[in-house]
Design a protein around this nucleic acid. Sequence first.
DNA 1: CGCTTAATTGACCATAATCAACCAGGGTGG
DNA 2: CCACCCTGGTTGATTATGGTCAATTAAGCG
Lengths: 239, 239
Amino acid sequence: MIDPLVDKLGRRDTLSLEEQEAVARLLSPPQLIKAGTDLVREGERPGYSTLLLDGLSARYSSLATGGRQITEINVPGDFVDLHSFVMKQMDHGVMALTDCWIATAPHSALKTITETQPHLTRLLWMDTVIDGAIHRQWLIAMGRRPALAQLAHLLCELYTRLEVVKKASELRFELPLTQVQLADVLGLSAVHINRLIAELRTLGLVSWTAPSVLILSWERLSALAEFDPTYLRLNRDPV
Amino acid sequence: MIDPLVDKLGRRDTLSLEEQEAVARLLSPPQLIKAGTDLVREGERPGYSTLLLDGLSARYSSLATGGRQITEINVPGDFVDLHSFVMKQMDHGVMALTDCWIATAPHSALKTITETQPHLTRLLWMDTVIDGAIHRQWLIAMGRRPALAQLAHLLCELYTRLEVVKKASELRFELPLTQVQLADVLGLSAVHINRLIAELRTLGLVSWTAPSVLILSWERLSALAEFDPTYLRLNRDPV
DNA sequence: CGCTTAATTGACCATAATCAACCAGGGTGG
DNA sequence: CCACCCTGGTTGATTATGGTCAATTAAGCG
């Protein structure tokens, strides 16, 4: 059940059997959340954190003016609001982009982990730190890359992260986001997203028949995006 | 010596005397870093993390095309690369924007903290988590706010963070960044920054005689920015 | 088969970038 | 001492990326 999390953490360090069991004990039985509903609402003070087991979700914030910005896309194996364990109050909402299987971990139990399992604590800490690294890459893409490169970067990132948890392979993955949602990810308009996708197709970089994406040339796409996966920390490096 | 860190953490939770001493023991004697030099270089694998004691520094990434994006501004009391403790490899550089006083904490000693001081560990974890929250606010500002509101948001954030560590008061603070550097923060051109500052002046929101900034109306500036400091987690809330 | 949601396309507009001068202040060397 | 230079700030003219508005098409579904 916690396979995607073990897949991910196992790429970064060795997760002992006891640690895997400790994580499993943390978690509630899986629950199904329907697409479009919130896993966590902005401003809430949840008493637990939520692990995404299957499906895609998005962290988002809404503006007074009606706009919306998605600040991260979560893939299976992501603790979507692990930071609420120490932040207490959520500074954003998390919505299910697809039907999602989740499991929750009470903050009290996470606290016990920090008191008894320092290595596992560091691994969980690392996971929140990598969220920060992902945010930074999005900032770089938004601030200093042309929109086409920004979209290319998103595709490279998502493919890489999905591949780790066996939801992508052979340069192919499912991206069940509408163009409006993609616009809210990149901070662009939906119309422009449409034109960017058309341009990626014209350039022969992707074959994109929503929701399926096939990357036709990883080489050229990642070069366009200046994608360097170091920030995802996928090399085994004990902490 | 670790006053700014204690000021900051003390706003979030109670830091016991023993914990304050434990942090103090972590740290090397203060060192001076000249403005413009790197505290940490991108790609490096530092064996320690750096606490900023005085001055301002910036996390930045450079692009192949020559552009640069600053992804966070660090104020006194910030561990500028605490995340390297678990990330190992730096995904960005950190440069001194002004002359900076710093102290370093070996990762080995931080590891010991995680093994012996769970509460302090959670406070340090929290600090990295708040970095992520700051990144998210910047993403929202970049993606969905007009440039003027984005700049206003930056001013509100920096004033608030500096006030916590007693480097700002009475709506006044020092912002020793060039307009080129501000452009690299906001993902805009330096020329446009210049016009935005002129506009803030015209609107009577700030009196800005570099490097001194005086906010003339917190009310109107924070409304323009839609600034809500929840994400900085400045309310005492034990973890 | 009509309804709804999402994708697509065209025409026009706006924000911000670029290019290019010019100005102001502080430090330096003759 | 002061001309010069360098950096950073200011301003104008023009361009371009991406936004907005609006209409059309396509696909899924009760």
